[in-house]
Nucleic acid binder design. Structure first.
Lengths: 341, 341
DNA sequence: GTAAGGACCCAAATCGATTTGGGCAATGGC
DNA sequence: GCCATTGCCCAAATCGATTTGGGTCCTTAC
């Protein structure tokens, strides 16, 4: 179906204008010196032929393609069935794309280019946005070695903090949610954490432990893989509620986990929020927290705003500008029925 | 900041393996004949040097870059302030990106490449998805001329139906919403339509007119630009409710318009849904319909599913496969308080 | 013994632009 | 009158891969 692409090349324009390709290139880039009249003739010829310089050829010389890559780590195990309703990511990606376009770039979603089966085009990006880098992220190792600009949205937990990472302020967020659970009547707060080794999980765990110990209590935390989803959350809930001293409040890392914990509580005949309060540190906009009965208190991490900031910083880097250091990430606790008596 | 990119090239590998670049290329592509032992030596050298072929250079020769472009028409007037919360688009884009990656492509959001100020990279895509093509869409004209594969998500209203466009079934959807308004007690149904000249608007208008006339009534429709948003909807509402025979039900094309109409009704002291029923043909998932008081009945157009289908069809085209013709687009009417007595 | 046919490898052309390093004429300064 | 400068233009090299079109050997077949 794809017939022959017969776009006019720089040579066609040169022939038609009666000059050399060099002169055509100069006429457009303003690089050499070209007589005004000649330049006009060249533009005229280009217009007649509908000439547009080929980005790929230009990219080959300049090693700049005009594309920013977006790597979403939680999406990477593509072999495992991916659940589509990850609202946070969808919003982040859409907003980043928009911001990139406004800045003159295309934004491309790519899987980790260090994976062997990744589309090759992933390597061609001028810079990368990496959301939720994992511990010792191999992509960051590679990009650092090859001097390709990047920006982590979230720190690489194993590397020192640096301007290469936007700090999500996970600890602050988790502490606020825990405080809210306590204020809503929770006296023994458990946590359901994820297993990905990224800032989000590791900092949340630390924040939870700190918070609990500051109250002189013993931590009660279980871990479930993010991909285990609602079923995993339900398991976790059953485990928690089955202990000798069951919690009267549960903090969850993901909306799916929270929905599962809620289901487990109801199955045991526990009233929410009467007997158990449930809150989630993210996913305020997902079906799981919004449409459950009762709806689950959760946190709006402002992915749309965050993505715009990330793109601005990365684009500056790609262009060799030292970007201003952004302030702390914003968020908002959305209180819902699961913690509102 | 961007230091010198010193990735190994095919020549480096050739030198190290003691063969010509041709042989290296053949060893990887399996194109010529290469002795098994030589191929192994080449692979070994490539591994040691961390060689990965340069996609841009390859793209230059093959004129295939491995990138699908996504053009979202309603986003195109980027000069006008763009409102970020366009959930439909965000979901569509995110889902399309994911589907593309699973298929081995990158997905890039680009503005209309026929615009002079568009990022040049937009032209380099192997194929294009165009959501909501406008009448006589200039991009479609260009792509057709240059034999670049594309797929319209929504028809170009000025061109004959063809497999180049996914039919959104707008007429069907609008008719169902209108029926619902009638069933909810609306006896005189007005419409607030958009101004973009795309399938969504033009077919909706036709469907509305047909529906009203089939009941022997006179149509009562006003038009407001999509970008006018909630304020535009409010104006439209005031205009409608100020007429001699005000409607007792209003169909809106966008969630923002609907929110504005709702505000206008309340400002006049009209009860919703008691005096006026309001429903929207889209945007079931936006703040404007979901979080208003009362929430507004609207339609889930299933953007996530639609995007996956679109990518599958387009990727087939790019690869020269004749894709199966997809069935009609799915949708679901989400009934909410604005039409539920 | 010789010709035909593989197997294996390479030099050079190619993709479409940009950049380097001149060449040629007209002008200006002394 | 001569040299230096400037304005204008072009041929060729370059970016990093793929592809074309041979060129050598070495087997086989007759």
């Amino acid at each position: 179906m794809a017939g022959k692409r017969t776009r006019a090349t720089i040579k066609d324009v040169a022939r038609r204008a009666g000059v050399s390709p060099t002169t055509v290139s100069h006429a457009f880039s303003g690089n050499g010196t070209v007589a005004a009249e000649t330049a006009e003739r060249v533009r005229e010829a280009a217009r007649e032929l509908g000439y547009r310089p080929d980005t790929v050829a230009r990219g080959l010389r300049s090693s700049r393609l005009g594309v920013l890559g977006l790597v979403v780590r939680p999406l990477d195990p593509l072999d495992t069935a991916f659940l589509e309703g990850v609202d946070y990511f969808l919003r982040f990606a859409g907003s980043a794309a928009l911001a990139a376009v406004e800045r003159g770039y295309g934004l491309m979603l790519v899987p980790d280019p260090t994976r062997a089966d990744a589309p090759a085009v992933g390597l061609a990006c001028d810079g990368f946005l990496i959301t939720e880098p994992v511990e010792n992220d191999p992509l960051i190792t590679m990009l650092t070695r090859e001097c390709v600009p990047f920006l982590g949205v979230g720190r690489d937990p194993a590397r020192p903090a640096s301007p290469d990472y936007l700090d999500l302020g996970t600890g602050r967020i988790v502490a606020e949610v825990l405080d809210h659970l306590a204020a809503a009547g929770g006296s023994r707060v458990a946590a359901v954490l994820g297993t990905d080794r990224n800032e989000w999980n590791l900092d949340a765990e630390r924040a939870y432990l700190d918070w609990v110990r500051a109250r002189g209590q013993r931590p009660l935390a279980v871990r479930r893989a993010e991909v285990a989803g609602e079923a995993g959350g339900r398991e976790a809930g059953e485990e928690l509620f089955g202990t000798a001293e069951p919690p009267d409040a549960v903090y969850c890392q993901t909306g799916r986990h929270a929905a599962g914990v809620l289901a487990a509580a109801r199955a045991r005949g526990l009233a929410v929020p009467g007997d158990v309060r449930i809150a989630c540190g993210a996913d305020s906009d997902s079906e799981h927290t919004r449409s459950s009965v009762p709806p689950i208190t959760s946190v709006d991490l402002r992915p749309v705003r965050l993505a715009r900031i990330a793109v601005a910083v990365l684009a500056d880097r790609v262009e060799g500008i030292e970007p201003p250091v952004p302030g702390p990430a914003e968020y908002e606790l959305i209180v819902r029925g699961s913690t509102r008596g």
